[in-house]
């Protein structure tokens, strides 16, 4: 599905990605949820944005379904992306925004189900500038999940959601997985990752430090839960560096 080879990216003097190699295969029958983890500044967002073509890598190649995607734009029709911060033109209404995104991506949508699920019906005619942060995030989620795409990328999806919406979000993610989609998630909330993810990709210092299942990461660090396993990795690498 995704194949990344020798990816390099520098922002000014800071080298964020240093020859990252990653390949993610999804078994088309069951799909898969891959969590991309790592400390702050380890390159998670840069990696995701490179796949989306928002960050232009200095070196390396990225292939989606065996097709090179760098400098192309059409392939994004097959990716749904949930950005970290939701901010929309404040003078458009929710309805108009949905219409606009549909206009930009001529694909069948399931927006009505999602509007019901998140209770967005009373907000449809409201201007986006007048919505609360949590409601904006719901609109953001709606825009992400209303298209049927092979790859779904979620950057910190739980930000600002109330418990019910969080449950709904988990439900949608699992449903999409059932349909055989590949889902890439970054999150700092370990309980969420532990609940959802099938596979963990741990980034450290611009490279993949660990890739494997939840069970494997816990076994290799001799810890009972993910939070401690991650902490164990970080302390051992820190002592190595010191």
């Amino acid at each position: 599905m995704i194949k990344i080879k020798n990816l390099h990216k520098k922002f000014g003097k800071v080298e964020v990605l240093k020859g990252l190699d990653l390949s993610i295969h999804s078994n088309t029958s069951s799909g898969g949820i891959v969590a991309v983890l790592g400390p702050n500044g380890s390159g998670k967002t840069t990696l995701i944005k490179s796949i989306l073509g928002m960050v232009i890598p200095d070196k390396g190649e990225i292939k989606l379904q065996d097709k090179n995607i760098l400098k192309k734009h059409q392939y994004r029709n097959n990716i749904n992306y949930l950005p970290q911060i939701a901010n929309f033109p404040s003078n458009l209404s929710v309805k108009e925004l949905i219409k606009m995104v549909k206009d930009l991506r001529p694909k069948p949508t399931t927006d009505n189900n999602l509007i019901d699920l998140f209770g967005l019906l009373p907000f449809l005619d409201k201007k986006l500038g007048n919505l609360s942060g949590g409601t904006k995030q719901k609109v953001n989620i709606l825009l992400t999940f209303m298209f049927d795409s092979e790859l779904i990328i979620l950057d910190e999806p739980t930000t600002g959601l109330d418990p019910i919406s969080l449950l709904n979000l988990k439900k949608i993610i699992l449903e999409e997985k059932q349909k055989g989609k590949t889902i890439l998630i970054t999150s700092h909330i370990m309980s969420f990752v532990e609940e959802m993810a099938d596979e963990i990709v741990f980034l450290l210092d611009g490279k993949i430090y660990f890739k494997g299942t939840l069970v494997e990461i816990k076994q290799s660090t001799n810890q009972k839960d993910l939070e401690h396993a991650i902490a164990a990795i970080l302390t051992t690498t820190n002592s190595k560096f010191n």
Partner: peptide, 16 residues
């Protein structure tokens, strides 16, 4: 002001 919205557009199948 429209930076975040531009990011949303950049994730759509559109040329820069």
């Amino acid at each position: 002001n429209s930076r975040e919205f531009t990011e949303l557009l950049l994730a759509q199948p559109l040329k820069r």
